[in-house]
Amino acid sequence: MGESRDAAVAGAGPMIEATQVWKSFGRIEVIKGIDLTVQRGEVVCIIGPSGSGKSTFMRCINHLERIDAGRIYIDGELVGYREHDGRLYELKERTIARMRSEVGMVFQHFNLFGHLTALQNVTEAPIQVRGISREKARDEGLALLRRVGIAKWANSYPSQLSGGQQQRVAIARALAMSPKLILFDEPTSALDPELVDEVLAVMKELAKGGMTMVVVTHEMGFAKEVGDRVVFMDQGRIVEEGTPEQVLDNPQKDRTRAFLGKVLHHSRHDVAVDIGPGAANGTAT
């Protein structure tokens, strides 16, 4: 496992390697020793009840939260710190920002910049952070919006778009930085049911294209169809993990079974949904 730590072999080892991650907020332990490895091109779905620490763990991956113990490596690079002669040094803000720019994140409540149009949302970071020219960013931005099916609304403001459209802009915005991987934090939980499919369609297309994805979700159908691995978290720990068939169809642990029993009872998407050919390039809706 040691060789994956060497920055010189970035591109060879796992995309994410999290070891014994612990995180508390004050006196409340939220993450209690998580070990997780995500390979290049893998789609890992994290499921679990609220309060299990799933979202917090995601935020730890890109250092939006600081961990209290353990190590997280992204593509061989230690997150948040530099290790030298056995001591840890906090990284400068600019370095952390640079690392974050390589990790895309899509949020449950979209978090689109309300004062900017959809296209401006997508081009803002490439221009500001990467120094890409306005024209080039525009062209690439329009191409991305076309890819997620909303080129028509490039000049609309987030407040003029439906939730599904906003989330697709958010995905395009994350893609604009050409990230190595994308973290999805319950991307469809805040959407009306009829808008969920258009977002899932975009995510499926990304997965098929080989993007490394970590998705916190309740959409079991998505997990089955596209997920390479499912991880069940509860109370800050990983209870069970395996292929979707193993964890979702054949859970070994009682807690997993109990959780799935409650979730699948309510889910409309517990059967793989057939989207049809038009959805991935946005010709539906």
Binding site: L64, A97, F107, F113, A125
Partner: peptide
């Protein structure tokens, strides 16, 4: 707060996120 989260997740520093995203809003 999500605005700052999103801005930082895209690679903006706190200062830049403040100037470009938070303060205009």
């Amino acid at each position: 707060r999500g605005q700052m989260d999103a801005a930082m997740s895209l690679g903006m520093t706190h200062g830049r996120a403040m100037r470009r995203i938070v303060i205009p809003q």
